[in-house]
Each structure stands twice: as C-alpha cells, then as structure tokens.
C-alpha cells in the first residue's frame, strides 16, 4: 500500500480499500470515517459532496493504478490504450469509478485529462496539415473510444473481456483514421 501523506490522501486510500468489497454508493462517509479513524466531519471538510470525493478518488486511482504509458505515434497510442484496458480488467471496481467520475459535472478538476492533450499532441505531429475542424473531430473520437467509459460500456453492456474490447477499439480507430486522405499523414 501507498504511504498516505495527508488526511485527504488517507481518505482516498481507505476508500480504495473499501471499493474492493462494496460499490462506491455503499461507501458512506460514516463507514469511511471509521475506516480512516477520523471524524465524519473531517471528511466533509475535505470532500464537501460525494461528487468531490468521487472525482478525487478517480484521479488518485488513475495516478496510482492506471498510469497512462506515454505515446507519440498512433501505434504507441493503440498499445497504451490496450495496456490500460487490460489493467482495467484486472481491477474492474477501480475502473468503474473512473468511468463514473468522467460522467459527472466537473467539480474540482476542470482541466482536460492528460490523455486528451497527448492525443492532440500526437495529431499535431502525425497530421500537421490537417484543418482544425477535422483535427478536433479525430481527437474527440479517439479520446472517446480510448475512455474508461468505452471499456465499461463494452464490459457491462456487451459482456466483452479486455481482448475483445481492444479489438473493438482498434476497429473504431481504423474507421476514424480512414476518414482522412492518406496524404494527411506525415512520413514517420
């Protein structure tokens, strides 16, 4: 386990432990307070609403359990996403928290996720002459197909495992990239 450095992090670490045996909805502030050994009031001070707790917990899980491998090229991007989907499959309860946190109204963290910026940077290099609208269409599509939401939807709605989800992801990426003329892509 990580060494919690402050109260806010200790609360997240305990919430992550509790997630192994119950869903986020079933982790009340009272249960969480008992687990950390602090008062409920202290948790409210750190996380005024459950949405704040969910967003912070998701960020912390993302950093500690699902770090995104860096990527520059499209094939590195595919490999990085495959690695994440496989990691999600080994810790589904944690990945569901990420999918859910990405669906709520933004609370504390209104910055785009790191993967969003990385996809935009990848396209800047791979397709430098691509017009702005098509660039955003491609970036948004790639971002959405590489999300925890995509993994969660295919796992719960389609009963797919990580291998099958990676296959569906690859095919979606192919269709998006095929929209652009071949000449768009910079020579590696």
């Amino acid at each position: 386990m990580e060494e919690p450095v402050d109260t806010a992090t200790a609360i997240l670490a305990s919430a992550a432990v509790l997630l192994r045996e119950r869903t986020f909805d079933d982790i009340s502030y009272r249960v969480l307070a008992d687990e950390v050994g602090i008062s409920e009031r202290t948790i409210y001070r750190q996380y005024p609403t459950r949405a704040h707790l969910l967003a912070a917990l998701s960020n912390w899980i993302e950093q500690t359990r699902f770090p995104l491998p860096p990527f520059v090229t499209v094939s590195d991007f595919r490999a990085a996403v495959h690695e994440r989907f496989r990691a999600f499959d080994t810790l589904p309860a944690y990945a569901y928290v990420g999918a859910r946190a990405s669906a709520i109204s933004p609370t504390l963290d209104t910055e785009p996720a790191y993967i969003t910026r990385a996809i935009e940077a990848m396209l800047d290099v791979a397709a430098p002459t691509l017009n702005r609208r098509d660039r955003r269409r491609v970036a948004a599509s790639l971002r959405y197909f590489s999300s925890a939401m995509f993994w969660a939807r295919l796992r719960t709605g389609f009963d797919l495992d990580a291998g099958e989800i990676c296959d569906a992801f690859d095919r979606a990426v192919d269709t998006v990239l095929a929209k652009l003329p071949d000449a768009t892509w910079a020579e590696p």
């Binding site: 869903t23 589904p92 309860a93 969660a152 389609f158």
Partner: peptide
C-alpha cells in the same frame, strides 16, 4: 449509466 454493476443499462 456508468454505475457499473448496479443494474444500469449502459447500452
């Protein structure tokens, strides 16, 4: 829709 195993139907 993203509540995971709690009976939501994501699709």
């Amino acid at each position: 829709a993203m509540r995971g195993v709690n009976g939501a139907t994501p699709s």
